[in-house]
Design a protein around this nucleic acid. Structure first.
Lengths: 148, 148
DNA sequence: CACAATTAGATTGCGCACAACTTATCGGGG
DNA sequence: CCCCGATAAGTTGTGCGCAATCTAATTGTG
């Protein structure tokens, strides 16, 4: 029906607008650390991995980003002195992305960021969890369907 | 706490990933019409407005996009023959964005797109409405706080 | 009426996203 | 052992998104 073509009714627009609004909350906070939001996500993965440095592809799988996005982004993180990229010895095609001391140390300083952002959403902890789980379900449903 | 810095726990990542996943669903569908997703959103607003052509700022207020994004986007929609941009007679600073016959006609052909996309999410109608309302609430809370 | 401040839109520059392509390396089958 | 398909990362080109800046038109104030 034609009535479906109304902006306010579209889940996709709500998603698109909420995503940009939340990025707006992150921007000034991450700016204090000289990071963009996608760069912060890459660091989250690296911090989580600890010592075993992921390859570019593994980072891409975690964040659902391809090398076209990650290669220049990682180059910038390397220029900022937060990560190191090195060709794998056993497979020269792979590039392993590791943290520098500065990159690892940043984790402590950035610790309270999620709480600051959560507060800005105006939702309770329970609501945030419910929202996150719905969103994750949407994402996984879509990706599952694409693989078939 | 440090445990908050885990990718899967972050609402923001869920939002970011879901938004891109849903855009992935739209891409091949909108591609049949030669549109990108933001261009489709602009058309949604124009179709909704009917005869009263919004200015660039009014479009921006509806979609929360600024002229830096909209100006080149509208130029492309104009080049595609879907919209016309014209300086307002009574205020030469304003540019009014109207639909061409082709742009207006596209509405009919594109009508079933939201239903196709909704199906791809794997959520029920009720779940989609609940999700949309949560997201809208997040967006509005954030914007309200920013204005103060 | 003059002129400063405001407003509207366009432009520039940067950093994603993503498709398409290129280069280099690897692994398996003849 | 050699080639051939597959895989990994990088590059190029396009289109957002947004900050910062610019130009032009308008409004408010004295």
């Amino acid at each position: 029906m034609t009535d479906d073509l109304v902006l306010r009714r579209q889940v996709c627009f709500a998603l698109y607008a909420a995503s940009r609004a939340l990025t707006d909350v992150y921007r000034p906070i991450l700016d204090e650390f000289g990071l963009t939001y996608p760069q912060y996500l890459v660091l989250l993965v690296l911090w989580e991995r600890g010592d075993d440095a992921p390859t570019v592809s593994e980072l891409g799988a975690a964040l659902r980003l391809d090398s076209g996005t990650l290669s220049p982004l990682l180059k910038r993180l390397e220029a900022a002195g937060l990560v190191v990229r090195s060709r794998s010895a056993r497979d020269e095609r792979r590039v392993e992305v590791g943290l520098t001391a500065d990159g690892a140390a940043l984790r402590q300083r950035i610790g309270e960021v999620p709480a600051r952002v959560a507060r800005a959403t105006g939702l309770t902890q329970a609501e945030l969890v419910a929202l996150r789980d719905s969103l994750t379900r949407v994402t996984e449903t879509i990706h599952r369907q694409k693989e078939q």
